[in-house]
Nucleic acid binder design. Structure first.
Lengths: 185, 185, 185, 185
DNA sequence: TATGAATGAGCGTTCATTCAT
DNA sequence: TATGAATGAACGCTCATTCAT
């Protein structure tokens, strides 16, 4: 594995365990098995490392979930697929989940940053379509997106807190309906 | 105003602007107009200052909202009252809002901490009643509470992002229905 | 007990356990059960507190030991009495012992300080007489005094380290002979 | 000279002049002509710096004195050589002398620490032999060692106090006899 | 690319001392 | 005498970042 990747993986683990400010760059390098200085070759500042990691997570979430939405699906089916994929991804990648939670409440986070990402754009397009077709409440698309995201986060947090996995289809559906009902007309 | 209060208010403002780690204790004291050392007279460590502030906010939210719930109200009315009070409180107290968001994604936060607070207990009792009476979905009360809280947060964040206030009753209702629908049967 | 005495006793215990710099004045006051400020009423600075304690110990050592030297005693008997009294005093007053040890290696200690004390003067007179009478080696009296003092300290430290007391007269004598031999002709 | 050595030398001078607690780490670095931070690169804490210095002094004392003891020497000659070497070393290295005095009355010092050092072991072996051969009094070897050490310290302190050096062989011998007599049968 | 020693500003905290009451 | 809140300089230590190699 190349050093840049080693750094990202190690940083994510440490950030998720100890937070951005509880994790010294020197420690990231040490636990990644590389030298102190090389971190700043790949990421000129700690802030840029953090931002690079944000896009890394969003990219992987995009790759993981978008392929699962099939063409002929209904709107609800598509949203369900994306919702489920997001929950699964966060459950399986605990460090990514924690990292994103922290990132979004940190001063690094700017809304514009997120808007630019194709994952968000894909979701917004889907929601816009749903609003036009009258399937969703008359509420700004961005609010609906944020609301579902928040519910994904809440769900994941709850499942983790109780050491649960998504093996019960019945229960999974009920969780999704909760999110769906909040935005469907 | 006594120095302890000055410190709490100043700390909340600075924390909400620059984060816990972006705010030096020396700066809090300076901007509060008190000496460096007195901060540690009232709050032996920075961590304890942060935790004390958490309970300060929860106390004030409790005082603000609980009085508004009147006796004869239906369950939905009570939940609406609490939901609205929470949104209003967070809109009116921007620093408290930002502070709590940061606190809950920080290592200071422990779920048990929150459970002990009477505000949370009050909400859980109400939700439990709703579940027993069959008005809510068959989902753990804590998950419902967390879900509504997340939606309150999302709502507040959205309103602030768009410089909106809750003066349009129609729109306010629509926002609440979104939360309500997600948990009502 | 008056507050001044309480402070001295508490300070001695804390100094002997944690050292001068490991003991905050605020802690001395707290554990003595008096207010923070009153300490500085009796002892304007921490340094003066420490110096006052030094004289307190020397005074008590003087009172304890001098009375035991009887008039008609030979030089060796008198020295033995003083030596034994010093060892006993230090064994019985562990805090005083530790305090003095620290004091004498600290920047507070000035030789002149000690010279002024009647206990030291008494000892020096005795030694001077021994030198004049030819019972002691031709070595400066102050050196002899310091040498015996060092051996008292070493003896006490050794007895404490091995949890011993001076109940074996035979052994006690052997210890004293060690000191005596080092200075007798 | 490398920075680690510069730090040790400067620290020893400052500690001997102003004590451990009267010497700020920042000052050590400044006067050593290195940066503040590098001190903690070599010595993670001030305590470890102090402990490292203790072993540095003991090592140098060992190197200085042991080579002077020649094979065929009698016990008394060997002890004399070590005694003289120790006195000389302490006279010539005033900062080492002061440092050790402070260290041994500080909370850093633990008896076990010292026992492990080869210098101490060498001395104890010699004393043990003297006891077996009946040349020394029937007193624990460790007590004899501590006693001689205390007399070395007393002697050095006395010589320094009076601005004397060991140029008078006659006087030097008399000083040694004082120590020797205290332990010889 | 890569190392790791080196920098130095900054931080949380301590504590002797002062002062209003 | 007595209190204890208040002061503020100082300290040990951290850490993002730089730089010589």
């Amino acid at each position: 594995m190349d050093k840049r990747t080693k750094l990202i993986i190690t940083a994510k683990r440490l950030f998720s365990e100890h937070g951005f400010y509880g994790t010294a760059t020197a420690r990231i390098a040490r636990e990644a098995g590389v030298s102190n200085g090389i971190l700043f070759h790949y990421f000129p500042t700690k802030d840029l490392l953090i931002k690079a990691m944000f896009f890394d997570v969003k990219d992987r979430l995009f790759d993981y979930s978008v392929g699962q939405v099939y063409k002929g699906a209904t709107l609800k089916e598509s949203i369900y697929t994306l919702w489920l994929a997001a929950v699964e991804f966060n459950l399986e990648n605990a460090n990514d989940f924690e990292f994103i939670r922290q990132f979004e409440t940190s001063p690094f986070y700017r809304t514009e940053t997120e808007l630019e990402h194709r994952y968000v754009q894909l979701c917004l397009e889907l929601i816009d379509k749903g609003i036009e077709e009258g399937q969703f409440k008359q509420i700004p698309a961005m609010l609906i997106f944020k609301s579902i995201s928040a519910q994904v986060e809440t769900t994941v947090r709850f499942l983790k807190m109780n050491n649960m996995v998504l093996d019960d289809v019945e229960f999974t559906h009920r969780l999704f309906e909760m999110a769906w009902d909040s935005l469907a007309k």
